[in-house]
Simulated assay, not measured.
Amino acid sequence: MVTAINVKSSPYIVGEPTIKKQGGWKSDATVWGYIDEGRLFTDNVTHTLIDRISELIGRPK
Rank of each mutant, 00 (worst) to 15 (best):
G58W: 01
I50P: 02
S54L: 11
V14M: 11
T18L: 03
D43H: 13
G23D: 03
S54M: 00
F41Q: 14
V45E: 10
I19D: 02
S9C: 10
F41P: 00
G23T: 05
M1I: 01
I13H: 05
T46Y: 07
G38N: 01
I35D: 01
D28T: 13
L40S: 10
K21P: 03
L40P: 01
K26L: 09
L49G: 01
L56C: 12
D28K: 14
I19H: 08
G38W: 02
Y12W: 09
V7C: 14
P11G: 07
G23Q: 06
P17I: 03
T48I: 07
G58A: 06
I19P: 03
K26S: 15
Q22N: 11
K26G: 14
A29L: 02
N44Q: 01
T30R: 13
S9Q: 09
P60R: 02
A4D: 06
T48W: 03
N44W: 00
M1C: 04
W25Q: 03
P17R: 06
E37T: 07
I57D: 05
T48K: 03
S27Q: 14
P60W: 01
I50W: 05
K8P: 02
T46C: 03
T48D: 02
V45A: 12
Q22V: 14
I13G: 09
V14W: 01
R39S: 08
V14G: 06
I50C: 07
I19M: 07
D36W: 13
I50A: 12
E37A: 12
F41R: 10
V14H: 10
I53M: 01
G38R: 01
F41M: 11
T18C: 08
K20R: 11
I35V: 12
T3E: 01
T18K: 11
W25G: 02
E55A: 04
I50V: 13
I50K: 06
V7M: 14
V7Y: 14
I53V: 04
G23I: 02
I53K: 03
K8R: 10
A29Q: 05
A4E: 00
S10A: 06
K61G: 14
W32F: 13
W32T: 10
T46E: 08
Y12H: 09
D51C: 00
Y12R: 15
I53N: 00
S27W: 06
I35G: 04
W32V: 05
R39P: 06
P17N: 01
I50Y: 05
V7W: 13
T42I: 10
G33S: 04
V7E: 15
G58L: 05
V2K: 14
E37C: 07
R59A: 09
L40R: 13
K8T: 06
I53C: 02
S54I: 03
T30V: 11
W32A: 07
I13D: 05
T42F: 07
D28V: 12
L56D: 12
D51W: 04
R39T: 08
G33C: 00
I13M: 10
D28W: 05
V14Q: 07
D51F: 02
G58E: 03
L40H: 11
S54C: 08
A4C: 00
V14A: 03
V7D: 15
